[in-house]
Design a protein around this nucleic acid. Structure first.
Lengths: 229, 229
DNA sequence: TTGACTTAGTGTCCATCATACACATACAAT
DNA sequence: ATTGTATGTGTATGATGGACACTAAGTCAA
């Protein structure tokens, strides 16, 4: 206890809303808290920011420590600073949201958290602190983001079919989309590269596999291009 | 010096990007720092967050103290937390942006800051800390916001002409807009109430005055309406 | 081998919206 | 009365968004 300041200071934490997609539902990664407060409750992965690391670094570190996830898409969401959001003392939390591909779902429950589990977005348990609010805002942000930036690919495997992409949009936005219009629109951006492979998966016609072209996307972005679905 | 913690803690500040509009240019309110570091440099208004106030409250308090501005449109922007953004020690800053009407421009330089001044967005002096970065991000956010939410009225007097509104959009977006198309679009939302007054202002035809209808806007917003210019 | 089943894949029409574009109007000043 | 200045208005065209139904390619079972 040797860090002393002239005025009282809030503690700083980061919390991460980690989204995943299993082909059907949009999912969120939660951890079960191993220590009080809210011991044994479900919560967003996160923890205290160290004084020698940036906020982004703290978010990535906590993700690794609590869920084993590395190298994911991560963006700052919003900072939550109401007075009583933590029963112990004043805690200000910078919230992030992450998008992870199915291949990264190798989330063996890690050291700091007792357990880590994916929950479908429509079946979330009671959450610790104000994490339900954070999740709510993150979902709204994801919906907005998805409609004007091509981030959906962060939630799909490297090779995917147009139907899988459509299912993802439907799951996130919570709407049904017309197949022909969706394909027309998506392909019109010229950001998907058709592969020589097909996905055969059941007693029906196999589906063309595509991959996202990040290089073309960067070029378009610089020219002030708008991806809008 | 009696506040002691087990681990070192970052100091927490808020910084505000205050936008105004004088009819011609988009302007930003800056203060000249009265104390080190960066003494006598221009900076965004802001200051330390107290442990008993929320982040929003801190931002509003600092605005009053340093610029005299009250009851303005204020939204959180982003949180900046790189290690060396403040030469003294680790400081994490939650940035806000504010939109103020000309009638509120009664910014007698206040207590904490030596001086407060409006600067046109295209003629900003060198700024303290990473405030140039913050301003940059705030401007991008304002541009985005303006095109899909009716926040422009926060920058205009209660009664305004369509030409004034168009000038505002042109100043913020940095583009020219066709007069007829702009008026058609804006009026189509049915959010402007024509007043019985006109603005006569020089040797030419006087202009119809309007006011914004916030009640109708709230109704439309609840029905999932999109304002897009 | 044939037929039944399942998902993949494709094109057109129509309504709506975005954009380009030019001239008459109302006032003040001389 | 004329000039100067900013206000205010409508149309035609091309592009885009949304509704909508059938064929294609494969598996499986009879």
């Amino acid at each position: 206890m040797k860090h002393t300041y002239q005025y009282p200071r809030a503690a700083l934490t980061v919390d991460c809303v980690v989204f995943g997609f299993d082909g059907g539902d949009l999912q969120v990664l939660l951890i079960r808290r191993a220590i009080p407060p809210f011991k044994d409750h479900w919560a967003l992965p996160g923890g205290f920011v160290r004084v020698e690391e940036t906020l982004d670094e703290a978010a990535r570190r906590e993700l690794v420590e609590e869920t084993g996830l590395k190298d994911v898409f991560l963006e700052q969401l919003y900072t939550f600073g109401t007075i009583d959001r933590d029963p112990r003392e004043r805690v200000v939390s910078i919230a992030y949201y992450a998008l992870v591909k199915p291949a990264d779902h190798t989330t063996a429950a890690s050291t700091d958290a007792a357990e880590a589990r994916w929950y479908p977005i429509n079946d979330i348990p009671a959450l610790a602190f104000d994490h339900a609010t954070i999740l709510d805002i993150a979902l709204k942000r994801l919906r907005g983001k998805l409609t004007y930036q091509p981030v959906g690919f962060e939630l799909l495997p490297a090779k995917f079919t147009l139907t899988q992409l459509q299912r993802l949009y439907e799951a996130v936005l919570g709407t049904e989309i017309d197949k022909r219009n969706f394909r027309k629109k998506v392909l019109s951006f010229d950001l998907l590269i058709p592969l020589k492979e097909q996905l055969r998966d059941g007693p029906h016609r196999p589906a063309q596999l595509f991959r996202f072209d990040p290089v073309k996307y960067e070029r378009l972005k610089k020219k002030g291009f708008l991806f809008e679905i």
